[in-house]
Structure formats: structure tokens, C-alpha cells
Design a protein around this nucleic acid. Structure first.
Lengths: 239, 239
DNA sequence: CACTCCTTAATTGTCTGACAATTGCTTGCC
DNA sequence: GGCAAGCAATTGTCAGACAATTAAGGAGTG
């Protein structure tokens, strides 16, 4: 690990990067204990606060976890899919909201990615996935559902579709795209007619997935994408 | 912003989360200055080191930047696509390496996502994108190229393909998938025959993109995916 | 007035020392 | 052996000090 630091730069940042690189390079392996704060102070010749700030930076990225007490310390964290989801969603959400990405662009990205999953999902989905999709469709048909709850169910439905592909890497990549769109989707108000139309499309989609008909699922998804963009545009313009 | 903290928990973590939520909720907008460290100490009734550790956590996620001096302080950062790329790549790389995701799964995810871009790229790519792809193909044909340089060029080629779709959200999502695979790809040794084959596929791909033939590009990508998986399997098994 | 230089105040970056809280280990007692 | 007390190591928090950086204002000078 690099221990020589450039003065007149942010020391804690440099230390964090040195340790992060060591983790990425594999010099520090999962569950391995890092040197104690005191040892790191010596190693980098800095004060304890500086070391601590560096460690907090790494903790914020889920790269390490810390434990108090004897035989405690900082340990390299196994990056779990769960944590990675969370990070990705936060980042994607902020990216979309802060850069005023328009609805159309985000929608296009989302459905393009989702369509990539459809054929795989049609081939590999388990009965569980289909059941989840059916359950969400049922929820979406309930009268008196708030727009937000409708959106949340929509996310859950599509999540099941994506998970059906049985590829955790795909699921991870798509979690960000789908969930990050939720704030944008929440700005839309759905009339009963809109919901009926969406539920109908979802039903056909679930049928296609259950029937292992990937190309039909793809087709329906493109319909859904088109309809959603249309909906977004009309709703945005009436404001 | 929430200022009441649960004692006997990690204070700096709670503070960081409170501020992060305020940013996500839009209570703190881009380029807005946060209260100074001293003010935050008062607001949360904690010591300065605790506040500083919280701020470093946020800085590690690129949520804020800090400036020294009078009229300095911590400011809400605009999450740029550039920074988001970097974060995503780090996360994806670690996720893949730490969870021993097998080559096949990662490859499938990567090419599934890339195929989602192909039709869009065929429609929208600029001459610049095509030129980049051609340039990378040329580089890949050079004799004496190391395997690593070959892989890097491969990434650049596919990056141009994805960027050609002209959708920054898509580019962002895919940056992680493509670049995170590089360490896995780097484990492969490419014979001259392998390279020739890949260069041929790349050339046909560039032709299809240039000729705005999305479905042909899609087809070639599936060929490339199949060949890559095959290559990976044979190379892994001979170890 | 315009320009330069100096001082001042505000703010973050770093260091030191102290104490609290937690936790595993050892030691002594029954 | 089993149990409780204490000990040592480690992170979490705090307070105070000083350094480094930067913007703003003021003094002096042409």
C-alpha cells in the first residue's frame, strides 16, 4: 500500500484512496482486518483524526465495517448485492434529479434495459416470479389506490420481471434504472383509464413471460414504453 | 432536517444520513452552502470531529465538496455523469470480484445490456462514434499489442457503441457493466486467431452501425457474446 | 480615483490529549 | 470447572489548539 502522501493535498482523501486501491487490487481481502487506527497513524505519519476521516470515507462506500472493543477494528466488507443496489439507486436518483434528465430520455433508457431482460426472463423465470407479477397486477387493479402506491407496485412488477432473468448482475444494473425513475413517475397522475390500459399491458406481459414467449414480451414492452412516454408528455405539458 | 439523534448509535453516520436525505428531498439544492462545521455542531449538539466525519462520508459519495477560507464551507455537489461513472465502476468491479460472479453470468449481463443499445445506436450514432469504433478496430489489429491493451481497446470500442445511442442515462448504466468486466476479461489470453475473429466481428458491427442496421448489429452482438463466453470457458478450464 | 499591500476574520484541515463505551481475555476465587 | 472482576485493546466522542487558505476591507500611494 502506498504510504507516501502528497502534502498540501487532502490527506484523508489520499489515505482513503490508498486503502481503496489496496482493496480493489486484492492486497486486502474480504473480512481481513485493517491495521488499527493507531498503526495507520504511524504508517502514514498523520494524526488520528485524519486516519479516522479516511476510514469514514471508506465506510460510506461500504468498503469497510468497524467494530469496537478488543479484537475489533476495521474489516474489509464483502460488497453485497443488497448494498450495491442501495448505492446505485441513490446515485441514479440524484443524477436524474440534479441534471434535469427529461422524462423521455430516462424512460427510453429504462425500457431499453428492461427489454434486454425480457427474453432471458421468459426462458428462466420461476413460478415465484410469475406469481409476484400476478399479485402486483391484482394490486394495481384495486380501486382507490393512490398514485404513489400504484407506482410502487409498478416498480415491484418490473422488478419481478427483471429478477426472472436469474442474473444477479442484470438485476443489480437494472435496480438503479427502474427505481431511480420512481420520483419522475410519481409526478404523473394516473386516470382510471390510464391504469386500466397499463394493467392490461401488464397482464399480457405476464402471460408472455409465463408462456416463455420472449419476443412477444419484448413487443409488449415496447408498447408499454411508447404509452408511458406518451403519458408523461401529455401530463408534463398540461402543467 | 432531522437534528435529534439516537444516542448509542454511530452519530456521524446518522448526521450524514440526515444531510443526505435533505439533499435527496431537495431541501438542500445544488451549490447551496451547508452550515459551517461550528453551526452543525450546535445544531446536532455534537463535537466537531463527529460533524467532520459525517461530512467526509458525504464527500466520499460525491454529495458535497468543501472549500477552505472565508466564504468557504461545504456545498451541495451537482452529481455529474462523470463522477457517477466512476462510482458505478468501482462498485461494480468490487461486486463482481468479491462475489465470485462467474464469467458467463457477467458476460450475459453485459451483452444483454449492450444489445439494448444497438438499435438506438444504429439510428443515432454520429460520424464521430463510427470514427472512434474504426480507430479502435485499427488499434486492435496492430501486431504486438499486449492482452491488456487489447482489452482496453475493446472497452473503448464498446463504449463508443453505447455512447452512440445518445442517451446519457444508458451510457451511465452501461459504463459499469462494461468496465467492471475488464478485470475478468484481462484474465483471458488472446491468440492471434482469437483477435482476428474479434476484429472481424467488430468490423461487421461497425458496418452495421454505420449502415443504421440495428437488427443486424443486434445479431452480430449475439454472435460476439457467444464467442466471448466460449473463449472464456475454454481459457478458464485450461488453467 | 485606481491600484497595491496589509491586516483581519471566517472557515476548513490537522494534531494532540483526554475520556467513554465496548469487547475479548485473563486472573483469582469459590 | 464455573463465575465474576478486572485488564487491555480498540473504536467513538469531545475539547482545544494551531496551521492553511481565502475573501473582504482598509491604509497608503501614485
Amino acid at each position: 500500500m502506498k504510504t507516501d502522501l502528497d502534502d498540501n493535498q487532502d490527506l484523508s482523501k489520499q489515505i482513503a484512496e490508498a486503502i481503496r486501491d489496496a482493496i480493489i487490487e486484492g492486497d486486502l481481502i474480504v473480512d481481513q482486518r485493517l491495521p488499527s487506527e493507531a498503526e495507520l497513524c504511524d504508517k502514514f505519519s498523520v494524526g488520528r483524526s485524519t486516519v479516522r476521516e479516511a476510514l469514514k470515507r471508506l465506510a460510506a462506500q461500504n468498503l469497510i465495517r468497524t467494530q469496537r472493543g478488543a479484537s475489533g477494528g476495521a474489516f474489509v466488507n464483502r460488497m453485497s448485492f443488497e448494498e450495491a443496489y442501495g448505492q446505485q439507486i441513490t446515485t441514479s436518483t440524484l443524477l436524474l434529479s440534479m441534471n434535469s434528465v427529461d422524462f423521455e430520455t430516462a424512460c427510453e433508457a429504462r425500457y431499453a434495459l428492461e427489454r434486454a431482460c425480457a427474453p432471458l426472463s421468459a426462458r428462466r423465470r420461476t413460478p415465484d416470479h410469475v406469481a409476484t407479477m400476478r399479485a402486483e397486477i391484482h394490486r394495481q387493479s384495486q380501486p382507490g389506490l393512490t398514485d404513489e402506491a400504484f407506482c410502487a407496485s409498478d416498480v415491484a412488477f418490473h422488478r419481478a420481471l427483471v429478477d426472472g432473468a436469474g442474473n444477479p448482475v442484470l438485476s443489480y444494473q437494472l435496480a438503479g434504472a427502474v427505481e431511480a425513475m420512481q420520483p419522475l413517475m410519481n409526478m404523473i397522475t394516473y386516470t382510471q383509464r390510464d391504469r386500466d390500459r397499463i394493467v392490461a399491458l401488464h397482464t399480457r406481459l405476464a402471460d408472455a413471460i409465463e408462456g416463455a414467449d420472449g419476443s412477444r414480451a419484448d413487443l409488449i414492452l415496447s408498447e408499454l414504453a411508447e404509452y408511458t412516454v406518451e403519458l408523461g408528455q401529455s401530463r408534463m405539458s398540461t402543467r
